[in-house]
Design a protein around this nucleic acid. Structure first.
Lengths: 229, 229
DNA sequence: CTTTTTCTTAAGGAATTCTTCATAATTGCA
DNA sequence: TGCAATTATGAAGAATTCCTTAAGAAAAAG
């Protein structure tokens, strides 16, 4: 599962930067734009999973931008607006925004809404992950929750599958045992080295012809494990 | 598979248009109607695969419309209602709706429900389905609602048939007990593990030569069941 | 209304997987 | 080479998941 990216659009740099800090803290990638035009340009160039859009901006305001975005995509949009603005007009929900926060806002509230929208978006499958990944003779079959080694289906346990999935979806990248533990178990890693090592070994037993000299699941000494791209 | 068509029925044009944008982005055809009568007329003239129906509408309200539609057809219906409305009346599920969303709603949530219902309808329901599927020595006979194992017809009960159908129409894909329950029973899964397991066993008794070592209906440990492609 | 079939529920047992711990092997570096 | 750090392995008990049985409830058929 790769990092999710949020595009923050506001003409006030202080606000952009403030929001950025909170989002980065939660592990999101953050892109920034100062107006609607910039935001649209960003969308062309980067993979974005959620947009925060201020309504009042120079060049292109948030509502216009929402229309433009909605012509092409269903990505979640959260609108920001000053309290004073007319509540009918600003009810951006009707123009295609998915949620709506009035300024001034509590950063944690915005954060909660970002999370909520992303959860929906990701669960909905709008944010699609490949369901077939092939690396050399190794194939990940997402639908069947199995791995195919040289055309032979291999059953993995849930944990084994998740680890393999993580390494294959990010092939070439090295993951420390700590990282693997946190992403697969979804909890703080404490003394996780050994348990991850045990599972790695089990996976190797199943997918490697010669576990002593692994062809796919390799160790990077002192750092972690990876599957070569 | 050809494009699926959704009929959006609401007396508020802004809502109709808002929903339309999301659905079109997702690749659906969209038809619109302002009240129940219009909706029924639309149904006569066009092929529709799912209906979104507001409850409060002039001329003919959503509940009446649901009754009329259900007299003839089994297509999925999603009801919209204002939060304030009386929870007994609005519990449209009892009058034949398949799902139910309160206003104001998050567009992405509605979209998720539309997708979920359509998936059910298309994959398991009455829409464009093959009426003969063969997997190895296993044959699904839609007309006779039975399964043929090595040329020997086998009678399944309704639930058994539906489970088998789901797994065969999506051969190779793993379904959790929860998913199986929700798709077959068409309701929220609560403590569904056991009941699904019992049915699985019954099916195995009927279609497997050696239920202890199933050839078709396999378990994927910690995840669910599948029938291999 | 009675009989038969199907569905649901509960509970114990069986099988598989996960974790832990002890120990061995390997690597990088002084 | 020898040492320290890191990774690999084996085996056992704990934990989880699945299977099976059986009996009563519900639904369908007669």
């Amino acid at each position: 599962m790769t990092k999710l990216t949020v595009l923050v659009t506001d003409d006030d740099q202080a606000i952009r930067d403030g929001i950025e800090i909170y989002l980065k803290n939660e592990g999101y990638n953050v892109l920034k734009a100062a107006d609607g035009e910039e935001a649209l340009a960003m969308l062309q160039q980067h993979e974005v999973h959620l947009i925060i859009l201020d309504i009042m901006m120079p060049k292109m305001d948030g509502i216009t931008a929402t229309f433009k975005i909605r012509e092409e995509r269903n990505i979640p949009i959260i609108m920001l607006s000053a309290k004073a603005e007319d509540s009918d007009k600003i009810h951006g929900l009707s123009v295609g925004a998915d949620d709506y926060v009035t300024k001034p806002f509590y950063p944690l509230e915005l954060l909660a809404r970002v999370k909520s929208q992303l959860r929906r978006y990701v669960q909905l499958g709008n944010y699609e992950k490949e369901d077939k990944i092939t690396i050399d003779g190794l194939q990940l079959d997402e639908a069947g929750k199995e791995v195919i080694v040289d055309d032979v289906p291999v059953q993995l346990t849930p944990i084994e599958y998740k680890i393999t999935e993580l390494l294959m979806r990010n092939a070439g990248r090295v993951f420390s045992t700590r990282e693997i533990y946190e992403r697969v178990w979804n909890e703080e890693a404490y003394n996780a080295e050994n348990i991850v090592a045990v599972h790695i070994r089990k996976i190797r037993e199943k997918i490697e012809a010669d576990p002593k000299h692994p062809r796919y699941l390799k160790v990077v000494w002192g750092i972690g494990y990876k599957i070569e791209k």
